[in-house]
Amino acid sequence: MGITVQNITGNTAMVIWPKMASCADSFYSIMYHPNWNSMLSSYSRKSFQKEERVPASRSSFVVENLTPLTTYILCVTCQSANPSSDQCRVFNTLEQDPASASNTKKELALGIWLTSSILLLIIAAILLYGCLHLLCRRRRDHLQGQNGTSKQDCRKARTKSAAYASEELGRQSQLMRDTKDPGGIQLSTIIDNPSACKEPATLTSKSWERVPMTGQCSAIN
């Protein structure tokens, strides 16, 4: 059939085949398997580990993800048919390219770094949310405490105002009772100054004579 394998590296190989008239309206099957042993293996499709389907318009394909320093068998058939010996080629992969190994390590390191960064961002977001929630809760509790203190102050102010108003009302009532005393001398004055009772109290009027108040004072005493 004229199948050839070219550009072999540690991980890739290019296979080239001539076009088949029977595959004009179908596809090509590229089957390959590592560690090939012709004494123990057959050319049936079940013996191949991997299979790739390529459009009929193509006549070459690059096989990737191969293992370095490994013997492979590769076959090209039409419409997934069982291959024959003339449709297969055996080749050996080379050692892994240092540049490829370096790129693989870089990709691995980059993947680890990206994963770690995402995890750190998630943890930071969770911690930030927790801190904001705690601050909001403390602020709400503080505002509630201030509102409670303001209510207590208002109640105390109202109580003091009511007590002051009651005291003023009592004073006014006492003043009115003292003013209406018929004897002309206030009762509170007599109680505060008992010596005033020793001298007779007189009423100065044209129609009234002096009337001693000794009896009233003795009655109070």
Rank of each mutant, 00 (worst) to 15 (best):
V54M: 10
S84H: 15
Y72R: 01
G111Q: 15
A13K: 00
A81G: 07
S60E: 11
T115R: 14
T179G: 00
E95I: 04
A24S: 12
G215K: 06
S100L: 09
W17G: 01
Q87D: 12
T214M: 01
C154Q: 04
A13M: 00
V62T: 15
W36C: 05
R58S: 13
H33D: 15
M31K: 11
G2T: 10
I185F: 10
Q87K: 13
C23V: 12
A99Y: 13
P194A: 09
I220D: 03
G215F: 02
T202Y: 07
T104V: 10
D178K: 02
R89G: 09
K180P: 00
N103P: 00
N7L: 03
Y28C: 08
R177F: 00
V76R: 02
Y164C: 04
G170R: 09
G183T: 14
G145S: 09
Y72E: 02
P68M: 05
S218E: 04
S57R: 07
R158N: 00
I123W: 03
S57K: 12
Y43D: 02
K206T: 01
S22R: 08
F91V: 02
Q216M: 05
G145N: 09
D97C: 07
F27A: 11
A24I: 14
L134D: 13
L134I: 11
E95Q: 06
S47N: 06
Q186Y: 05
S41V: 01
S188E: 06
L119E: 02
T179I: 03
N11Y: 09
P200C: 08
P98E: 08
N221R: 08
R210K: 03
W17I: 02
I126R: 08
E209G: 05
G111L: 10
G130L: 12
A24N: 09
P212F: 01
S57H: 07
L128C: 13
T70V: 11
S57T: 15
T67I: 12
T71H: 03
M31L: 10
H133V: 13
S150P: 02
D97K: 03
L110S: 14
L169A: 13
N37H: 11
K19R: 15
K198R: 10
A165V: 02
H142I: 03
T149L: 05
P200Y: 03
A219V: 01
K198L: 14
T159H: 01
H33T: 15
V62Q: 07
C131F: 11
K46D: 11
L121W: 05
S26K: 13
P212C: 07
K50G: 06
G183F: 13
A157I: 01
N92W: 00
A157N: 01
A201P: 04
L135S: 00
A219T: 06
N11P: 01
N65P: 06
S161W: 04
G111A: 13
D153N: 08
W113E: 15
A196C: 12
P194K: 12
L119T: 06
C88D: 07
G10W: 05
